[in-house]
Amino acid sequence: MRRYFGRKLLVYGLTFVVAVTVNWMIPRFMPGDPVAGMVARANVSQPAAVEAMKQYYTGLFGFDQPLWRQYLNFWGALLHGDFGISIWVFPTPVSDVIMGAVPYTLGLMIPSVLLSWVVGNRLGAYAARRKLMDNTVLPIGYVLTAMPYMWLAVLLAWGLGVVAGLFPIAGGYSFSMQPNWSAEFLLDLLHHWALPFASLFLVALGGWAIGMRNMIIYELESDYSTYLAALGAPHRLIRRYAFRNAVLPQITGLALQLGVLVAGALVTEIVFSYPGLGSLILKAIQNQDFFLLQGTFMFIVLGVLAANFIIDIVYVVVDPRTRAGMAGAQA
């Protein structure tokens, strides 16, 4: 068990180092004088912001210092939680800007990812080896999973928002409201959340359903299923076992899909101008706010690593083989 988690943590640790290094290195590859370039590209009107930017960049890059020193400085700042000052909402610290957006992204992602995973698995398992269901679930699943996230978002926003007028299509809550804990505000929040959630949920659903269907068929053809069938065990029992075993690779699949799911959430947020990290990224790009972009990047990497680790733990809890193998009990 220790070895398993040790290995995983090593990978995650290294990944973090690589991500930080990429984050540090890329700006240095920028053609021309980075400070001047960035200040010029960030067409900020406030002189204070320009000055702060210049100062920050010079301090951050510290071009008079040797490279290794610059690298260490970068780490130092990072470990102090210092992501710099946002240009777009000058002079708010980047970390504050990100923290304001994170709840929206998590509130959108966690339910949609988990729900699509659960429902998709059920649907796929149900469809497997049932002609009629298979012939409907499979094609729909392929269409959904082939859809770009933003396109389904646009379609939903247009169909249910603009044409049918059932849902608002922009923002996290109505412009006329101030965030508070009143039922009215929460309902409004939910109303704005519905479409982006539905969009993320639907696109991911197809992939899980197809994956589960294929896994279940594989399990139903496995030796233990054949053996149970030869002993006359009812389909119900065989399917129950198959489902249980097919869920395991789907858990691993969830970890592998995290990057795609995050990307999907980002573009979906952009479509709905939902005030999460996706909209933040768009704003950062539009305003050439590189600190904000880099901070958001670091934050996404950390989030994905944490989620991966949680999934690893869940996997060990769910798959007896990892535990049995790790306890070293070999008869």
């Binding site: 990429v22 890329i26 795609v260 958001t296």
Partner: peptide, 23 residues
């Protein structure tokens, strides 16, 4: 394997965002 796992875990789009934005 280690290299593969690292690149596997890093969210692709986020890296591409940084690369495309800066370069």
């Amino acid at each position: 394997n280690m290299l593969t796992n690292i690149v596997l875990v890093i969210p692709t789009l986020a890296v591409l965002l940084i690369i495309n934005a800066y370069l």
